[in-house]
Every structure is written in C-alpha cells, then in structure tokens.
Design a protein around this nucleic acid. Structure first.
Lengths: 341, 341
DNA sequence: TGTTTTTCCGTAAACGTTTACGAGAACACA
DNA sequence: TGTGTTCTCGTAAACGTTTACGGAAAAACA
C-alpha cells in the first residue's frame, strides 16, 4: 500500500539517492532517468512519507492556525475565520505548504495547545488570531524564537513579527461621523468583554470622534459582553436604561448585533426606525437581516492570502532571494450603507 | 532549543534506550531511574519530536477533519462545525491524539486534499462531514483501506465505517406533522441544491408525512439552493410564486432561513404572522432572530465527542482490549418551539 | 593518445525516535 | 556452590527521507 522510495528504486533498478534527487529536481541527474523516475512515481502512486521527510529536513512544511471558539461561548463558533482560512490555505498551498488548524478548548488562551505545537515541532510556523492587547502567546513565541504571524495587532512583542489587521479605530471614527452627520448625539457602543485588541481600537476611535464632535463621553452608553448573540442580547438593555437613552448603537460584530436587535425588538424598539444600528464587522448575516444592517466589510479572503505571503516573507527558509523581512499592514474597512441607520 | 532524547541521555549519563523506555512507561526500567528521567525531561523541557516518533511508530497520532466551505459560497463559512470540532478535539486529546483540520478549497469535493493526507500519511484517520448520497471520498477511503468516520450517512461504502448522523428524516416528518396540526396544507420545503444526504433524508421525511396526511406532493413547493443566506434569498420567491402559495415553509438550515425571511420581508410577508417558518437545524441565529425561529436542535458538541469514541473504537491500534468494532448511530433532533410557526 | 573536466550515480550517514535482543548483575532456590 | 530466574540496562537496527562525498564513465580538450 504505502510505497516507499525503496520500492521505487528497486522497481527502476537504481539507487534511492538518485530517485530522491530526481524527485526533488536536483541538477545532477540525467534528464532521461529523471523522466523514468517521475513516470514510475506516478505509476506506483508514490508520494514521500511526510514524517521521514520532516525528520530529515528538520521542517514540517506545514503552518498551524490556532483556532479558538468564542471565549465564554460553549455552543457556537466563529464563521468569521473561514474565508480567511480559505485564502490562507490557498496561498500556502502555492508554496507546497499545508495548513493545519489547531483547535483550542473554549475559554483557555491556547497557551497549552500552542506549546504543544511548538515543542513537538508539528509546524514550521503558527498564525494567531484574536490578538489581545497584551498577548502572552506572542510573548511566548518571540521568546521561543518560533516563527509566527498574527491576524490583528497587539502591544506585545514589538514589531518583530508580521501582522495584518483591520483599521478598527478608523471604523469607530467613521461610524460616529456618519451617525453624527445624521443628527445623532447619544451614540452607544457595544463591544467585547475581554481585552481583545480590536475592541480596544474600536473604542479608541469612537472616543476620538466623539471628542472631535464635542460630544461628551458617557460611560453609561458603553457596554461589554461576550462576542456572540447572547452577549449582545444580555448587554444591550443596559445602555437603553440610561437616563438619556441612545438614539444609535454601534455593535462590534454581527452576532452581538443580532442579539442586541432581539433585545430591542422585545422592548418594542425597531432598528432602522426607532434607533440607528451600525455593525463594525459586516457579514452576510448583516446583509440578509431585516432591516439590512449598515456595516464595515472586511476583505477576509484576500487578507488570508496576504498574511500567508507576509508570514513566508518573514521566514528565512521560505523567503526568496530578496531575504527575510517583517511586514505589518493595516487594511481599511469599507462602510456598506444599508437600512439600519 | 530543541532538546532531543540524546541530550536527555547525556545529561543523565544513561543510554537513550533507557530514557525512551522510561518516558513511555515500559516495565523494564527501574522506578528510581524512571523518576530521574521524568524530572530531567521536565527540567530540560523535553518533548519528543513528532516526526521522529511518527516515522518510527508508523503512526502520526493525529486525526484529520476535512473542513469544506459551503459549496458555491465564496465569502462565508460554516459555523455549524465549530462546536462539533470542539467535542471531537476534546475527546481525541484524552487519548493523546491531535486533531488537525484540513481546509478544502470551496467548490471541490476535497478529493485532492484527501489523497494528499492519505498518501503522505499525515494522519492516522480522517473524519468526513457533509456526506453525499453517493460519496466518492468514502469510496476512495474504503478502497485505500484508510480508517475514517463520517458525520452523516451515505449510500457509499456499506456499513464498513463508523458514522454518526442526525435523524433528518424524522425531523422532516415532525416538521410536517406540527404544521399540519396547526392547520397548514400548503407546506413548502427549501433544501440544499447538491446531493448532500441530509437534504435527501429531510425531503424523504417530508414526503412521507405529506402522504400520511393525504396531502398531495407539489413540486412547485420544493426549491433547491445553496446552503447559505444567498441561496435562501434566491430561491424562496420561487415557491411563493406558486399558483396556490404555501402558508408554511420548512428551511433546511438557519442561513437559508435567514435569506428566505429576507425575501419574504421584501414581499411584505411577515414570518410567524403571515407565514409559518420552521428550520431543521437550529442555531443561536434562530434563537435571536425576530421572530425567534422554531427549529430542531442538534447536540453538536456531544456528537463530536461520540464520533471520536466511535472512530477510535473502530481502529485496532486504538481500540482497547474489547477489540475493534464498527458503530453507527443516528441521533434524534429535538424540536424547539419558538415564535415563527 | 593522454589529461582534464563534466556528467551522472551509488554509498552511507544523518535526522529523532522506538524496540528486539542480549548481557551483566542481583537474587532465589536447591 | 551451582543453577535458574528476575531486574535493569546498553547496543544496534529500523522507520523513510535527504544530501555530502567520492568515483566511474563520458565528454572535452590538448
């Protein structure tokens, strides 16, 4: 079943060394024998054993993505990453690399899983998402000298690793600008409860824009919740109980918005009619919700592709002749105006 | 950085053989030296190189899950699997196995990725999802003699592999029963366009129940679409254009229902008021939608755990003293009544 | 023809493990 | 004391690759 390089060599009556060289495109092998090897490999359905290759080369030729369920969320997950992963995987495949997704248990910060991947050398590099403001995963990886890249920024680790993020701060500003232009002064913000950096950045933009418009920041209009439907549902009533209730709400993601709108509906408040709603990260859910939610659309699949490029460029073994370099990018978030504000 | 078993042996002044035996809990090593080895391993932060171990053992100690984006869906993904994967990974981890998720490109049937995993022996077994009525992946794996389990049934491959499925046929029956009991006779069904087996099973139940109630099957009330928001949105108007339009619609999943409800809303039809809506696979989206959608709730995380058990039980190398055996199960889908019907 | 260069290929070591085998030491038993 | 048994452990081979090295044959050159 499992045909090895020895089978191939025996079948062709040449040495395994030559077979290997032929397969790996080395120059010192006759064009003729190379062809014979290639043909035989196809015929015998040979493909190199990954463990053997990794062991010898000292590289696994695979990249790990650390996937983590919603913190605090036991029953549902994050569709956000799928198109990102599609792009990531497509680009990695171009360089002959495999993408493996490592599941973390909900709630933990992946530290243990991450250690496991690093210490058993299961991957040549890892990709992190949902970066926190201070991120121990980043500290660990930099300290261990293990290659990685992040989707999202962090204050940890300096500028020593590639990162690709969305401009959540600008989105916060734009959302407030748009609402103010439409006459709103009481604008609430619903954001994740943890120290996820994008929540922090969003709030920074929100506050900055408020200040610029001469609107006083009111802590009563800010609420933290789990980044899911339940979080939005639980937390939205809080801001509505303000002495001077908001006329607009900015939600930090689609699931929170869905839950929030549910809470509003139960209170007889109609989004897009009685109150304006904007979502920072737009998804198809926003588009097909009624009313269709105004939101900021990320280009997830291109982001995956780009981060793969950036990661490879940062690893000497994979970077081309150009030499390894660290790239960090922040991509704009484009507003899609719909019916909810 | 990467401390090997040789470092450990040198440090302790014993042979690598003894170190390995101590680490692997073999009987023929003195309790005393075992402890010394264990201590040193912790101190030197040693953990065995996965490639070396795999090569020697001929097993990778990891299981691959083939994740595939929605067919026809370029931009969004499937949150459905996340809790399933959480359960799967948790159970596998108990046996010291890693779960790796292999991304497939959207649109293809994963055949190529699957071959790659199998041929390079990257995993000891694979888990398939979204089984089709006739599934070439299953044919390939059985023919290759590679261990696998499926989430969902198929007609391919006989009963030779473990499978865990939900009772979509029963759900189809129950949905119709419930709607008929509430006075509906014109009941539409929106299902996936491909030959995904759960869509087939659902429709079989739907037709059976219709027959039992003496309601004639009307092809005009059936529509196929992509299993996502866009699919539901595109296809729902078709059934509404029937000469005798439906008073109830059963959607095959939450995303289709979301898109379908959008289309209904645009036509001025209010789900839960002007028309009854039931969703086969319930998710938080259904719960937080307005109106909250009646649906059938799967126990995803327990399903993941169970399928892991079933898979391991089917593999001689992992099955305990009991010996390997094939288990196939079909789990019930529980109706959660809400406001949409 | 003789010498040098080039082309091509075989040999063998190495990557980090696990494990079959055997041997020395300690022990038990007569 | 002699024989057999049990505990430990070291040795070395093996898993499937890749690659440095060297050498034979062919080609190029004088």
């Amino acid at each position: 079943m499992a045909s090895s390089i020895h089978d191939l060599a025996r079948h062709l009556n040449i040495s395994i060394g030559t077979v290997s060289r032929a397969l790996n495109g080395r120059a010192d092998v006759n064009a003729d024998t190379r062809q014979r090897v290639l043909d035989a490999a196809k015929k015998l359905n040979y493909s190199p054993n990954q463990s053997g290759r990794s062991l010898r080369r000292g590289a696994t030729h695979s990249i790990a993505f650390m996937l983590q369920p919603h913190p605090g969320d036991q029953e549902y997950g994050e569709p956000f990453f799928i198109p990102f992963l599609t792009g990531l995987q497509a680009k990695l495949a171009e360089s002959g690399l495999d993408l493996i997704v490592v599941m973390g248990a909900p709630g933990d910060y992946q530290q243990e899983r991450l250690r496991r991947v690093v210490e058993t050398r299961r991957a040549d590099a890892v990709v992190l998402a949902w970066t926190r403001r201070e991120d121990e995963r980043i500290d660990y990886l930099t300290q261990a000298g293990f290659p990685f890249a992040t989707l999202g920024r962090s204050r940890s680790g300096g500028d020593a690793y590639p990162s690709l993020d969305l401009d959540f701060e600008k989105a916060g500003v734009d959302a407030v600008d748009r609402l103010v232009a439409r006459g709103h002064r009481r604008i609430a913000a619903i954001r994740p409860s943890l120290d996820l950096n994008f929540g922090y950045l969003f709030l920074a933009g929100y506050r900055r824009a408020l200040r610029r418009h001469g609107i006083e920041f009111d802590p009563e209009l800010i609420a933290d919740g789990f980044i899911n439907e339940a979080g939005g549902y639980a937390v939205t009533p809080k801001v509505m109980r303000s002495k001077d209730p908001p006329t607009a709400i900015i939600f930090n993601n689609d699931a929170m918005a869905l839950g929030g709108c549910k809470a509003l509906a139960e209170a007889g408040i109609k989004p897009g009619h009685d109150i304006a709603v904007i979502v920072i990260v737009d998804t198809p859910l926003c588009r097909y919700f009624s009313p269709a939610l105004t939101g900021f659309r990320p280009a997830l699949e291109p982001m995956g592709e780009r981060l793969a490029e950036m990661l490879l460029a940062s690893i000497p073994a994979y970077a081309g002749a150009a030499g390894a370099r660290i790239i960090r990018e922040v991509w704009p978030l484009q507003l899609i105006a719909r019916d909810s504000d």
